[in-house]
Nucleic acid binder design. Structure first.
Lengths: 245, 245
DNA sequence: TACACTTGTCTAGATCAATAGACATTTGAG
DNA sequence: CTCAAATGTCTATTGATCTAGACAAGTGTA
């Protein structure tokens, strides 16, 4: 059959990258599960209507990501296909949600700072502009692959030891508990998608041109008072967000 | 000051496109609101560390999108900056949610078909593989700009006249009501981000390399029986998703 | 072993992306 | 009016991307 899959020229996105993105999507959709392999280069070249060399560039990029492995004479095998599902609900907790999908979860503290709340941070936390907040910058990984980078903000008046507690306990939930807050719920989450900037590419170990899902979320205590405002960037080709309502 | 904003070379994404994406983001973040204009080409070229011609290519792409307008001698003015917020909650209804953000909302039926349920459709609707479902393909616009394309699936046994009713009433909620279903709720929504394919680029009138937010959502009646499974693609640079939990 | 099929490598040429510099044209302020 | 500042247009050059074709080398099957 050889359905012609459309790629566009002169758009500022190289053909090999468009094709790499399409193949990555097909792998993660399970389109090639039957064989466990990507179709031969000549077949892909035919489907996309490009030269075989262009397909090879795309496959080389995916091999660089560790997604596929080419073996001369046999073909190109799929090494990894999963896209981790991150559940968002009233009881969103980072490590719990990923649960069985990844064996080993790590959240590393990149840095922390005491700053004064500006526009969106103050609004989201329901405090006055200029009030002190504590900022935690973290990167989270699953099985060694970075999944997200976050900046989280906490009202310093209520959670003065947030940075130190988090450093010790490696958990926001436990750091809240150390301040006497036993429970909290997700109030709202905003989601946008965009291209990753240079800093995110480095921290998430992405190849440039990659997409991130950026979320702005607010957690509140059971009385509805905001306790955390958080901006996270998820590597879009490794994650999906699952909203439970 | 002239902070060096990072763009990466040899990544398969042209510099002018990376820069266009960054400027679009800055506009939508309101970074240039004070002046109502984009900084001069020479300044942008300095910030990004590229030639002025490269910046001009980026601005030309944004002008093509209708986001900015350049005037010789004056500068490049911002024409449009909003990103429509689409709320997702238990009571998600397309047109209600957009409400005051856009004046005029339209959902156009691209086509419909009677098909038999395959894997994900059957699973999501809780019916047997091979059972008949009705597929509606639609494109939704706000103030003339296309915002999303969707394929929605309904169990034909329960909603046999879905296509005809929708065609008449231009509303899923009303078409459900015509079948005797007065209320339904959003059960789950999965969100991934990826590059748009050729078909989506055309239907959403995007410039290639653009990003879409793809959602897979399930709506159910008040007894928890699924009534709709829907796959939607939102133009990521025009929309954000707001989750209320 | 012989063969079909696959990936790996090389060369050469065409087109696109980016840089560099020069100069024209328009606008708004003094 | 005069001038500075901004966008518009042109030429030339370099490097990246894509195409085209040929052949080498590894794999699995008959």
């Amino acid at each position: 059959m050889a359905i012609r899959k459309v790629v566009e020229r002169q758009t500022g996105v190289a053909l090999w990258r468009q094709i790499a993105d399409r193949i990555r999507l097909a792998i993660s959709n399970g389109d090639y599960d039957a064989a466990g392999m990507v179709p031969p280069e000549t077949v892909l070249a035919g489907e996309f209507g490009v030269n075989r060399h262009t397909v090879r560039s795309a496959l080389a990029a995916l091999a660089e990501e560790g997604l596929v492995r080419a073996v001369q004479g046999r073909g190109t095998m799929i090494e990894r296909k999963e896209r981790v599902s991150y559940p968002i609900s009233r009881r969103t907790r980072f490590s719990q949600g990923l649960g069985r999908q990844v064996k080993e979860i790590g959240t590393r503290l990149l840095g922390h700072a005491g700053i004064s709340a500006s526009g969106e941070i103050a609004t989201s936390l329901g405090i006055a502009p200029g009030d002190p907040v504590i900022e935690l910058r973290t990167v989270s990984s699953g099985d060694g692959r970075p999944l997200s980078v976050s900046s989280s903000y906490y009202p310093a008046a209520r959670f003065p030891r947030m940075a130190e507690e988090f450093e010790q306990l490696h958990s926001v939930t436990k750091a809240f508990a150390a301040h006497g807050l036993d429970d909290y719920v997700r109030v709202s989450t905003e989601i946008v998608a965009r291209h990753a900037d240079g800093d995110e590419l480095a921290k998430l170990k992405l190849s440039a041109g990659a997409i991130v899902l950026e979320t702005h979320s607010i957690n509140a205590d059971l009385d509805g008072r905001p306790v955390e405002y958080s901006r996270s960037c998820f590597a879009a080709d490794r994650m999906k967000l699952k909203i439970e309502t």
